[in-house]
Amino acid sequence: MGYFIDTARAMAVTMRNVFRPPTTVQYPKEDRVRPERYRTSFALVHDASGDEACIACLACERICPSRIITVKPAGKRESPVTGKKRNYLEDLTLDLNACIFCELCVQVCPTDALIMLRELAKPALSREGLFLSMERLYANESLAHSWGTGSRLMEMQDPKRGLPALEPGREAPPQGVDPIADGVS
């Protein structure tokens, strides 16, 4: 008898579900909520003055755990915007085939030049399709950016250091309060 009661209860549960809206999200036809730090591909960006932000310091190439970034510096020359002498990039390639999406290259970038994208991940039909040349990286600049930039990520690691003043609409963390150290000591 107990089995029949349990059967009826099981059937009641399934019938209740029939009248609930399906929870399926028809990805990729339907976009799902992407977190702020969702990250897919990469982009190279220009700085606030409109000059190329990358100074070819090789930091990203050195830190990359899977060694997929190749930077070729072009040497120092005068900036067409500010007139000051600085380093420029001749070529930067990034091979997504072996990328582990650790975001370390973004974190170490001193000029916030290399960032990751918040676009939907797009598959490629060949290995070449996942190889990002410098042209593709600069073309990606117009797409949606992920939250992380070099300065933001470094601030997260060490809040005392604060963000550079150039971040508009963002307050500096209150002085003397260390949210990480508070809990420990």
Partner: peptide, 13 residues
């Protein structure tokens, strides 16, 4: 279809 709705899925579409 019916089984899918029981599991709050769409089934064949």
């Amino acid at each position: 279809k019916f089984a899918a709705r029981m599991q709050t899925r769409y089934g064949p579409t």
